[in-house]
Amino acid sequence: MSNTPLDPSTMSRRRQILETYKMSRDVDPAIRWWMLGAFLVAGGLGFALFHWVLPGSGTFKLVLTIIGTFLIGLLAVMIVFGRRAQKAAFARLDGQPGAAARALTMLRRGWVIEEVVGFTKQQDMVHRVVGPPGIVLVGEGNPGRLKALMASEHKKHERVAGDYPVHDVLVGKEDGQVPLDKLVRHVQKLGRQVKPAEITELRQRLRALDAQRPKVPLPRGPVPTSMKGMRGNLRGR
């Protein structure tokens, strides 16, 4: 069996969900029971609701009640599946080189992610996100080595950013760091300090800086149908 990561763009919607479920189950075996429990609880509440709210009686009411019960149960299943699949995906990524870059693909439109704008031989990395907060430098790896690397990248970006803000974020579980599963939300909460039209100008300023650095391929690992693919699944698309 090939260990090549699956590309969600080559799979049908049903196949994407199935592959996401399989990989989530490997990390979280209880996911099936959570989904079943969600269906039974939500379905039971839905049945009671439709039974008392719908007027009349007979076969027509029973059919509507069954359909409504199934749809409410299915909605609950998808909500539970999405949350636990996301948690399992982060658990699967945690500790892998480039995990932060994979997590950042969960950001919505309006964000531009550049992988590995800075690095060390020991695979400590700095990724860059350009969006409403301005420039966000995201470091992952050994905190001691990252300190000098982040400081160097911060100075480089400040020189070309001008008045646009530059934020530093370290990914990890120690004090002052941001856990991988909370990275996206943390970046989104940095505020809106740059207008959409200004993001284009900011990216143009960064091109000169990027032209001076070598491109480094990001290590690829067995990521669940890629975080981008799973992002679409969790949104119901």
Results as ranks from 00 to 15, higher is better:
2 S>H: 12
3 N>D: 07
3 N>A: 07
5 P>E: 07
7 D>L: 04
7 D>S: 04
8 P>L: 03
9 S>K: 03
9 S>T: 02
10 T>A: 11
11 M>P: 02
12 S>F: 05
13 R>L: 06
14 R>Q: 05
21 Y>P: 07
21 Y>F: 15
24 S>E: 08
26 D>P: 00
29 P>R: 03
36 L>T: 10
41 V>R: 09
42 A>P: 08
44 G>N: 06
45 L>T: 01
48 A>P: 00
51 H>K: 02
56 G>E: 08
56 G>T: 12
59 T>C: 02
59 T>D: 00
62 L>F: 09
63 V>A: 08
69 T>R: 00
69 T>N: 04
70 F>A: 15
77 V>R: 13
77 V>P: 00
77 V>N: 06
78 M>N: 12
80 V>C: 07
82 G>E: 06
85 A>G: 15
87 K>D: 13
94 D>G: 03
97 P>I: 13
98 G>A: 14
99 A>N: 10
101 A>D: 03
103 A>I: 11
103 A>V: 11
104 L>T: 07
112 V>H: 15
115 E>P: 07
115 E>T: 15
116 V>A: 13
116 V>N: 10
117 V>I: 15
122 Q>K: 00
125 M>D: 08
128 R>W: 01
131 G>K: 13
137 L>I: 12
137 L>M: 12
138 V>Y: 05
142 N>V: 03
145 R>N: 14
145 R>L: 15
155 K>M: 08
155 K>L: 09
163 D>E: 10
166 V>Q: 10
168 D>M: 14
171 V>L: 09
172 G>I: 09
176 G>I: 04
177 Q>M: 12
178 V>M: 04
179 P>F: 02
183 L>T: 11
185 R>C: 01
194 V>E: 14
194 V>M: 11
195 K>L: 10
195 K>A: 13
196 P>Y: 14
196 P>M: 07
199 I>Y: 11
199 I>N: 02
207 R>C: 01
209 L>Y: 12
211 A>G: 01
211 A>F: 00
215 K>F: 07
216 V>W: 14
223 V>C: 12
231 R>I: 00
233 N>R: 14
234 L>G: 02
236 G>M: 09
